[in-house]
Design a protein around this nucleic acid. Structure first.
Lengths: 213, 213, 213, 213
DNA sequence: CATGAATGAGATTTCATTCAT
DNA sequence: GATGAATGAAATCTCATTCAT
């Protein structure tokens, strides 16, 4: 079932195999339900080797989170070209995001579900990555406001809330797209751009919805 | 620390005490890290009694999810009056949602984090509740479209995606509001209405953002 | 092999059974080579019960040391009557000491060998008991000096060294007596009294210390 | 921290480095808590080399015991000149003993604590050395008896017990001297000679044994 | 009803030891 | 000769769960 049992691999290669296996098991079973036995077997190595290279279950999980976080931000970053207009950058970033999460469901499960559910140290690790993405979106919103000559500027904490909402909506749609047969990354991105950008557009033009008294 | 040890309470009351304790422990420690010992102690009863009433850890967790899900949907439902315009209904519902999650952080943790992270049976239970809320939002969006005389109707799966995105944004803001000191349910609801409704408004008027070729 | 499997004993009884087993295993195998499995089996209970009652291997070992230390000092104390002359008290104490160690070789091994060899916390526990005995001997030596109208008094640190040497000699003879077939507690005590009280010099000159009738 | 990594040393030298490291680790951590990894690292060689030269952990420990036993008996033997009177020989031997154990605390720990605490094979190894010393002391006592024209001779098993007690007292004082700041080998030897040679009784009467100039 | 007593099964982790290069 | 890569076996400890009173 596991990887073909090839003997005597250099350490770097083995470590990646172990992380591959760990991400899969952690993503599917959850951090606590995952057993080191199962991970070692799927990786095609003995348990002591996993401990020799990765130290402990906690360290192994942390390594998984870091690797998957780096992969996700790299994928999004690679999809975006800085020179283009803000809406185009957001569109490109969203497509990359939905495509990556669809292709790496276990990694996404590790980042989005497992890391946040099993204690502060892990949650902090995942939060750091999320903060990067929120910061990126926040910059885009600010740029868009400038492009739309919005005056006066949006208050800072309002922008933060908007970026938070947008990222949350994207995370939610990622799960929805993965679960809905026939849904593509492009469709998910389109839906979200409609939802978010048109709404933001009105905001930019100074026509917010006003809460009732 | 646990409930006062009163003897001979009717079964229904005892069960609620147990569920109270379980929600607290599950919400704070997580499903797997929670121990039946700790739950029984916090509930002020002996472990065999927990098993007599609730059967198993899985059943206990399921009961928690159901109770908290019912409480949340009831709170949202109570906040909304069906006769009013769609935007007002959404506004009221969001306020109720943010208020309830802020007041019951452990219950919200059980529903939003724990239930989704520990296997299909639990996830399905939580998904059922979420689907109810998404359906409610979906109806609101359809009503709003009719109110705006939008023609032609939004395609159904597009509406589903929008509702999904809106709910995801709300969930994300709930966590953000709880973590950001000074943020209130009202503020969170306002931010989200700005984000979502103004965007939807443009959509309704047939002026969506168009993806680049 | 282990105790007869009697079910449902009160906790206090079970704990003593566990300590009995633990002293035996620790005394024979050594602290580190002893396995909790073996101890549980010899005690006739399951491992979790051992942990439930005694907490951890370290705590179990500590409990063994304390129990055996208390038993030994109690035995010595019971053998000595405070009113009598110093040499008589020493003689009685030594007999009690040799008798007890001969009857409880595993307990003596725990106190004399294992506790001193496996880390400060345990060693401190055993050292406390030993200090009690050394203090008792120190008092006896001082009393003897007074009885002999010695003037000037022996310097204090000299007395401490003498007591230390005497106790060390006794410990050594305990092992020797246990290993030498036909050696009795009485003989060991006689030899040591001769050695210590009369001194080799006197012995050579045919003036040994004579045991009381 | 370990030995400087010099390549291609002759086997005999490498072995001594390994034994140095092993004695240190065994003496400080104890036999079972010592890990071959740590020993290899401290010796500055790879683990397989340790196995190539010393075969197994047991063999390594045995080699340590033998080397340290030989060193101790050699030190004592070197301190004693056969022609002199018995008490002088004892005095010289004790000084050498206390000096050596003070200078090699790890070696002494291996011999006196570890070897006796971890199973018969090792204990036998250490007992062999101890027997040599006891035999030496036994001869001295016999010689002293002859020098004192004692008649009739002390019964043999009495002499054995006396030697045993004397050696035990010396071992005990060695630990005490190492633990007591300011205590020297000379003081320990003096105390023991007073105790053993003169006897407490003489001491009380103000007639101590006097060390040679 | 209620509980103190008890356990089967499995978790993480460590270590002495050996190949294959 | 020397070592990086690898493992079988076993240790401590925890937990959900059930009798017997």
């Amino acid at each position: 079932m596991g990887a073909v049992k090839t003997k005597r691999m250099p350490r770097a290669v083995r470590e990646q195999q172990m992380l591959d296996a760990a991400v899969r098991i952690f993503g599917q079973r959850g951090y606590m339900a995952a057993s080191m036995d199962e991970i070692a077997e799927l990786a095609g190595v003995s348990k002591p080797l996993v401990y020799l290279y990765l130290n402990s279950k906690e360290d192994l999980f942390t390594a998984c989170i870091r690797r998957e976080a780096a992969a996700l931000t790299a994928a999004v970053g690679a999809g975006v070209r800085p020179g283009l207009p803000a809406d185009r950058q957001l569109w490109d970033g969203l497509q990359a995001f939905f495509a990556h999460t669809a292709e790496h469901p276990d990694g996404w499960s590790v980042l989005h579900l497992q890391a946040r559910t099993h204690g502060d140290p892990f949650a902090a690790e995942a939060a750091a990555m999320r903060a990067e993405i929120v910061a990126f979106v926040t910059r885009l919103v600010a740029v868009a406001a400038r492009e739309a000559h919005r005056d006066p500027d949006l208050p800072e904490h309002e922008v933060a809330g908007l970026a938070e909402a947008l990222v949350g909506a994207a995370e939610s749609l990622a799960a929805w797209a993965n679960a809905t047969p026939g849904a593509t990354a492009r469709q998910a991105a389109t839906t979200l751009m409609n939802f978010a950008w048109a709404g933001l557009g009105n905001l930019m033009r100074g026509r917010p919805w006003t809460p009732p008294a």
